[in-house]
Design a protein around this nucleic acid. Structure first.
Length: 455
DNA sequence: TCTGGGGTCCTAGGACCC
DNA sequence: TCTGGGGTCCTAGGACCC
């Protein structure tokens, strides 16, 4: 804990849904749910309008559909659009300080005790940091086309994060140094990072409901309840003791890719091809980051939701798709597919910055997709769903029609796709239902909210 | 129509080495 | 002839976060 309130936490409000409402004028002020739109999807973000009906993050999309009224928009994510807006916001934070630690696309910590080059240094009085917070919120709204954020500022990461959570959305809370325990102790323990459902249940069983209750327990009680590291962590947090630094540029520890299938899969040939595809994407991401890794992990989730991992460590790190998929395929064979699998994942950890193999790799080395399956497994059965023109379209997707202009997909079905033709700077636009194989309709890049739609 | 996808950190047991 | 510790690596699982 510092003597000054010099750590800032920013949390963008209902971020994915806010970007959708910015880019889709007809959705402003209306319930919007972003997440998986298939039968097994879950909610990533619900707009505040959708939260009023009970939609929540991590809820199954099916449950959110039950709770929300007709006309609620259920959209798949447009991550490139979220990434672009997030980059703009992170850039604004780096104008405050070089020490910016993104926690996700929509959250970051900033160390205000350090200032940007050529900057005289921040006034770290309560009045000073309050002014910084207000200016930041205005700059974010201006630079993002109206996305809002909640800001907390305090003497530690803990207090900054607690602060940003106290007055959502569009809030600003500065916890004055010395006032930490008065803020902290009345809160439910679940507001502390690291207290999830399992820890909360165990704490409730010993009568701990608030952070103040937690602070009354002994260190040995908490260690026996939650383990050495977690227990001593809780003991400290309950006293607002937190000296975790803000760390810019955290190194990645693992790279992974996973997929939940619409229907459980059993066929090893089909599953092996899923592994090949995921291994290819993991390898590409490793190469993009100039990383390679020694441990390959296969994750599988069975029909009954039991989840297990199997891993193997190599003598040398690799970023080769073939090598990764060969190991993952063998791990799958050993683990078995009895009863069907609802999820497969492929990951690589034990990362190091240099790929040994790269020193000798030939530029035209065959890529995974060119190479027949090592085990000679037969071609997969026909996909369960016939590939139709319809399958190209998903709700929320940006599209362009040669005659009707830019728009986005509302829904699809029965050989039709419904598109609303509007852009960030237009009025709410008209809806047209088109044939899903309409040759004039194309997928498009996310619109730039600052640029008027060309006539 | 129950339960995503990308991660991090911790624990614990066994192998192995000194 | 029966018993050490400490340290590191590997594997597997679990809790948690956004």
């Amino acid at each position: 804990m510092r003597r000054e309130a010099s750590i800032l936490h920013l949390d963008l409000d209902a971020f994915f849904a806010a970007v959708e409402q910015r880019d889709k004028p007809s959705l402003r002020g209306r319930p919007v749910v972003v997440g998986g739109v298939g039968g097994r999807g879950v909610v990533a973000t619900a707009s505040y309008e959708a939260r009023a009906y009970g939609a929540r993050s991590a809820m199954s999309t099916a449950e959110a559909r039950r709770r929300c009224p007709a006309g609620t928009a259920f959209l798949g994510g447009r991550f490139s659009a979220y990434r672009r807006t997030s980059d703009v916001v992170m850039g604004l934070l780096r104008e405050l300080s070089p020490l910016v630690e993104p926690a996700s696309l929509d959250e970051a910590y900033v160390d205000l005790a350090v200032s940007a080059p050529d900057h005289p240094g921040h006034d770290l009085s309560v009045e000073g940091v309050t002014a910084i917070g207000h200016r930041l919120k205005e700059a974010i709204a201006e630079a993002t086309g109206g996305v809002t954020g909640s800001v907390g500022i305090g003497s530690s990461k803990l207090m900054a994060k607690i602060g940003s959570d106290l007055d959502k959305p569009d809030g600003l809370v500065v916890v004055p140094p010395g006032g930490e325990l008065a803020v902290l102790h009345p809160l439910p323990v679940t507001r502390l990072g690291g207290v999830g459902p399992a820890t909360a249940e165990r704490l409730h069983q010993i009568g701990v409901r608030t952070v103040g209750d937690l602070a009354a327990r002994s260190l040995s009680d908490l260690v026996s309840l939650a383990g050495r590291a977690h227990g001593s962590g809780l003991y400290a947090l309950a006293r607002a003791e937190d000296d975790r630094p803000v760390v810019a540029d955290r190194e990645a520890k693992s790279v992974s890719q996973e997929e939940t299938f619409e229907r459980d899969l059993t066929d090893v040939g089909v599953l092996n091809r899923e592994i090949d595809a995921m291994a290819g994407r993991v390898a590409a991401r490793l190469r993009d980051s100039a990383l390679s890794g020694r441990t390959v992990t296969l994750k599988l989730r069975r029909y009954d939701f039991t989840t297990l991992t199997r891993s193997q460590t190599l003598a040398q790190p690799t970023d080769d798709a073939r090598a990764i998929s060969d190991i993952a395929r063998r791990l799958l064979t050993a683990a078995g597919t009895q009863g069907g699998l609802r999820l497969l994942g492929v990951g690589v950890s034990g990362l190091s910055p240099y790929a040994q193999g790269d020193l000798f790799a030939e530029d035209d080395a065959p890529q995974l997709d060119d190479v027949p399956a090592a085990d000679g497994s037969p071609a997969p059965e026909e996909p369960v769903e016939p590939v139709t023109a319809e399958a190209r379209w998903w709700p929320g997707q940006d599209v362009r029609h040669d005659d009707l202009g830019a728009g986005w997909v509302w829904g699809r079905g029965l050989g039709r796709v419904t598109v609303r033709f509007e852009g960030p700077l237009t009025q709410p636009g008209p809806v047209r239902t088109l044939r899903s194989d309409d040759p004039a309709l194309h997928p498009a890049e996310p619109p730039d909210w600052r640029v008027s739609e060309p006539a």
